[in-house]
Design a protein around this nucleic acid. Structure first.
Length: 731
DNA sequence: AAGATAGTCGTTTTT
DNA sequence: CGACTATCTT
């Protein structure tokens, strides 16, 4: 019993309530810096130690691999023992495991492969081309985005009404053809993993029951980021077991644009009426002034669940606001403050520069470089998504699955071996005509001399090479296979020729891939059954396991040299982190909030939450900076200071004005309260229209009989005159 | 078929 | 401005 009370030490009252509360469902509204991860970690330890629940019966879900491994490590640290058998993973990782174990029930091939977003776009592009659609008019990116949003909502083509709308109709055709291509090729994209895992529950009740019995506790982190399918999957898995604890913060929901449903938080209380709600409002991270700024800002949003952060760390310094003439001036100011910081004996890694969009990093980089201050930029390209890496992986895929068309297309002429687009078109046409893979098609074309002599030779060379690789690799282990491919594919020489820093980096990455294969531990990926063993039929080879791992875990930032560096990243990627010194750069209307998000109230609110996330990263010192003039896409633009600045209480802001005396004149008033005057409608209201169906009010203008509202229907958004539209309120 | 040059178009990101 | 594509030249 001694260990158990230990778990509650140094926790505040609501935290204890979360950790030691009864086994029933609960919703934890955890403000920024309120010890959310700590609560989750201690809760799991408590379930094991005090409630006697086996780790084997616990499922903890996160959004990123990093969060998952951190959680596992912290629990193991707390318990002092390994957590073999406990499921801690991302939604996608867990869905993947389940689909592998029950691939037949899920209607998948045993060796189905996972498409990453790049693969997916490529495939959609092929589908669009094969449908004889104009790819200018129907860009693959957009179609992919559309398909993913449907899947995120749990919609299959058969569930979607096209209503004679050309946009919907065409995308529906693409979606259907794409789904067909995936099924035939044994390919599953990220959204599909989730959707299929959910459908599996519905389709196979015995299987669902098995997992419902297995898990006596379900825990979810970052709940505000769940999309419709993820939540549906959870809800079905929880069933009537009353064992689901979700932790989240509606004020930090910043991924609505990729399907996250902030409403899931409210929905949770409705779906689990017996659940209790606990608020964590004491912040252990920031000074009171920083929290006042954050609270003041977020108070401008409507429909919040309500939460006010407080701290006993003291007021601290006021926030500094700086206006630069232009972005270079802004960067210089930031770097000067960083110099001060360092000269006061602080670590560089304790300082972070956060911005809205990646493009902003460039100027900052230049100035830091000139001042010889080491920095590190987070985000951007991930390891397994790099072109050179994906090429090697494609050869490896062909070794294990020569019929993988996506892998074939990728490397058939990489490095260039004389098989141009015309030859590939020929192969593709033959493959489609005979309903066979590109591999089989090229084999037959070569055998029957259907290609020109030159092309035939090149294609034969490629086929022979892959066969040779396959033969050789039979005797080799994973890392030796990687070495073999890198050595003999000619990719090394190909990138060597590219020269420059870029080519050099690519070569280094190839070497890094060998290391990644060396250190890869497939046992971690295995699906353990009740007896602690993986069901034999679902076991994949190390090679296949590695390939799945590569798509599912795009790879941490390149094994970072651990030099003490200034941290630079977007505000999105800063979520969950904290720094003693924080700069929010580019606080200008148009940049932040971004132009594309300024029109719709809903999206503006999300930008505001992003700003809230940015502010709450700061522990002690926070600087807000903006530029009066900025080069965007090559031309000078003048922007007003961000409206968010004026939403921060004046008393915590100190304006640092070194250059001139321009005064902030953004109007300071509470923006519209959301009610459409003279009607019974308000922003965010769900309504039904006779013809367009159900939708949500995004915006309005005018009042009374002249009031118009913008409603977002499934088919797109429309402006309607309230007096004529006959909208019926829902819910 | 491969390399060179002109044209386009610009959020945020994980899996 | 600069990364990525489409089209042209050899």
């Amino acid at each position: 019993m001694m260990d158990v009370s230990n778990l509650l030490d140094n926790l505040n009252e609501p935290q204890r309530e979360c950790v030691a509360g009864p086994k029933g469902s609960s919703l934890v509204l955890a403000g920024a810096g309120s010890g959310k991860t700590r609560v989750l970690v201690h809760r799991i330890a408590w379930l094991i130690k005090a409630e006697g629940i086996s780790p084997f019966s616990i499922l903890a879900v996160t959004f990123t691999n990093k969060a998952a491994s951190e959680m596992r490590a912290r629990i193991e640290d707390l318990l002092g023992s390994s957590l073999r058998g406990m499921w801690v993973g991302t939604f996608h990782g867990i869905a993947h495991r389940i689909l592998r174990a029950h691939y037949e029930d899920a209607g998948l091939q045993r060796d189905f492969q996972i498409l990453d977003s790049d693969d997916q776009i490529r495939l959609v592009k092929r589908v669009i081309l094969s449908l004889d659609l104009d790819e200018k008019k129907w860009p693959a990116r957009q179609a992919t985005w559309w398909i993913n949003s449907q899947k995120d909502e749990g919609l299959r083509p058969k569930n979607i009404e096209h209503m004679d709308d050309l946009y919907l109709k065409t995308h529906l055709v693409i979606y259907t053809a794409y789904e067909d291509a995936c099924l035939r090729g044994g390919m599953v994209d990220f959204a599909e993993l989730l959707l299929r895992a959910h459908e599996l529950w519905l389709k196979k009740p015995e299987l669902l029951k098995h997992y419902q019995n297995r898990f006596s506790a379900l825990l979810v982190d970052e709940f505000q980021d769940t999309n419709s399918v993820q939540y549906a999957w959870l809800r079905v898995l929880a069933g009537n077991n009353d064992n689901l604890m979700v932790v989240g913060d509606d004020d930090q929901s910043i991924y609505g644009w990729r399907g996250a449903k902030i409403e899931n938080i409210q929905q949770f209380s409705k779906d689990f009426p017996q659940s209790n709600t606990i608020r964590l409002e004491q912040n252990y991270r920031s000074t009171s002034n920083i929290l006042k700024a954050a609270n003041g800002l977020i108070d401008q949003n409507f429909g919040r669940l309500g939460k006010e952060l407080w701290t006993d760390l003291g007021d601290g310094e006021p926030l500094n606001l700086f206006a630069g003439f232009n972005e270079i001036d802004e960067a210089r100011y930031i770097v000067d403050r960083i110099k001060d910081w360092i000269s006061q004996g602080n670590m560089r890694s304790e300082a972070a520069i956060l911005y809205r969009s990646n493009a902003q990093s460039r100027v900052l980089e230049e100035v830091l470089l000139r001042s010889q201050i080491p920095y590190k930029i987070y985000g951007g390209q991930r390891f397994f998504e790099r072109m050179e890496i994906k090429n090697v992986l494609a050869y490896m895929r062909l070794i294990s699955q020569p019929h993988s068309d996506s892998a074939f297309e990728r490397v058939v002429n990489t490095p260039p071996r004389g098989i141009g687009s015309k030859s590939v078109d020929e192969i593709r046409g033959f493959a489609r005509g005979n309903n066979i893979s590109l591999w089989d098609a090229s084999q037959r074309l070569v055998e029957n001399n259907f290609l020109s002599a030159r092309a035939s030779n090149s294609v034969r060379g490629f086929l022979d090479f892959v066969v040779l690789l396959t033969k050789k690799s039979e005797q080799l282990d994973l890392e030796e296979i990687v070495e073999l491919v890198v050595r003999e594919s000619g990719l090394k020489e190909y990138h060597m020729k590219e020269g420059g820093e870029r080519g050099q980096a690519r070569l280094e990455n190839l070497a890094e891939l060998v290391t990644a294969a060396q250190t890869f531990d497939p046992s971690f990926e295995y699906l353990l059954d009740d007896d602690g063993l993986e069901p034999e039929e679902s076991r994949l080879s190390d090679l296949e396991e590695f390939l799945s791992h590569a798509s599912l875990e795009a790879g941490e930032q390149q094994a970072g040299d651990s030099e003490d560096c200034i941290q630079m990243m977007t505000m999105h990627s800063a979520k969950g982190l904290e720094f003693p010194l924080v700069f929010l750069a580019g606080m200008e209307d148009g940049l932040f909030p971004h132009t594309m998000s300024m029109e719709e109230p809903g999206r503006l609110e999300e930008e505001r939450r992003l700003c809230y996330v940015g502010i709450t990263r700061a522990m002690r010192k926070l600087y807000l900076t903006y530029a009066e003039s900025r080069r965007i896409h090559g031309n000078e633009t003048m922007n007003r200071p961000s409206r968010f600045i004026s939403e921060i209480p004046e008393e915590v802001l100190k304006e640092v004005r070194m250059n001139n005396t321009v005064v902030l004149n953004t109007p300071k008033r509470k923006i519209r309260d959301g009610a459409v005057d003279g009607t019974d409608l308000r922003l965010g209201q769900r309504v039904i229209h006779e013809k367009f169906g159900e939708g949500v009010i995004l915006n309005y203008e005018g009042n009374g009989t002249s009031a118009r509202v913008q409603v977002n229907f499934n088919s797109g958004s429309k402006w309607l005159v309230v007096a004529y539209a006959n909208l019926k309120a829902v819910g």
